[in-house]
Design a binder for these strands. Sequence first.
DNA 1: GGATTAACTTAACATTGTTAAGTAAGAGAG
DNA 2: CTCTCTTACTTAACAATGTTAAGTTAATCC
Lengths: 204, 204
Amino acid sequence: MGVKERKLREKKFLRQEILDAASELFVTEGYENVSMRRIADKIEYSPTTIYLYFKDKAELLEQVCQETFSRLIVHLTRILDQPGDPLDRLKRGLIAYVKFGIENPHHYRATFMMPIPPGFDREKYTNPDAPGMQAFDFLRRCVFDGLAAGKFQDTDAEIISQTLWAGVHGVTALLITHEGFPWVDHDVLIESVVDTLVRGVAKA
Amino acid sequence: MGVKERKLREKKFLRQEILDAASELFVTEGYENVSMRRIADKIEYSPTTIYLYFKDKAELLEQVCQETFSRLIVHLTRILDQPGDPLDRLKRGLIAYVKFGIENPHHYRATFMMPIPPGFDREKYTNPDAPGMQAFDFLRRCVFDGLAAGKFQDTDAEIISQTLWAGVHGVTALLITHEGFPWVDHDVLIESVVDTLVRGVAKA
DNA sequence: GGATTAACTTAACATTGTTAAGTAAGAGAG
DNA sequence: CTCTCTTACTTAACAATGTTAAGTTAATCC
């Protein structure tokens, strides 16, 4: 009786269809401009069907972002697996992070720039499987490599990691929200920030 | 006939009452969790009255933030008017910026972390009277001072300014949105970011 | 004293996320 | 085959949102 399995496959399929439709709409229009009804229209189901597969709009967004961020993870993996100077790899990783954010502004916004829900879920951040946290862990590992090679001024890996994260998040976030601002060339700015940060933490 | 003027004064007064009520609610609950009806309740007027004084909710928020940010301006002015090494003043200014953001998270979010409305208003950012832009100009001035004193590695004031802004915005934004994250001590992190940035742009 | 204007309110609209109740088709058991 | 139960979905509705149009009431002007 493969019937049950076929059913399950079909169920999984619809779930994926919802995710795809939602992702595309979120990407093109931004989370808050997409209603559940619009997503439902796109997949030609009734709005309430979505609730059979996802608890609410927030969970749907979370899943969509998780998919996107796993792409960043493989991207970062490729960069960090290459040999070379730890500081160079660190720079390349940081730049990749920023560029990813800018290429996926709505998903970046959703994972890193959204207000904390009132009943904050600390678990979401300490949970290492969380989409964004995995990316941050990459940064941590880079910093450990650099520390082992004695490349840094400070010796606290956590402080260095968080400092670098704050820095790259800053450019990413500003370039996303302040599109109209008279920035210097994007690439120039990104490189400037990353260079400044790495110069700042590196041993003199 | 002072009647007309009294009327005008009363009108201004109600406007200010709305601003105050809105500000308090925005501060305690956050922009998106405050409805026009709640604001109206607080001042004991009907919801639609607000629209006689403000075009829409966004404009109301904008005015509220403007008020708040002018406090940052006077704060920064005090710091920058003190004598001393340009880099030291720069550091103090940057730290003040971050602390202000963290102490006014909702207003900071509203001015610097909100998605750009679809029909972007470039004018809002180039306009030097805009609340946030005035603060950024302070940073620019600091950088000019430092450049004049030959303190920086790079020579482009705009690149340096934007780089520093990105950096401090990063900590501010992350500390605001990721309250639950296992940060190292806030003050330690803030100081680390500012030190790193200034070390990064300073002449070796 | 009648018309005009100003300040404010009531009622309503369209849209949002979400839930409760219903329906129809198919699986499983006898 | 038939009765029942489950699965997968839909229809209808709710409460809340920002915002507008249409009053209403009181003071002002001529």
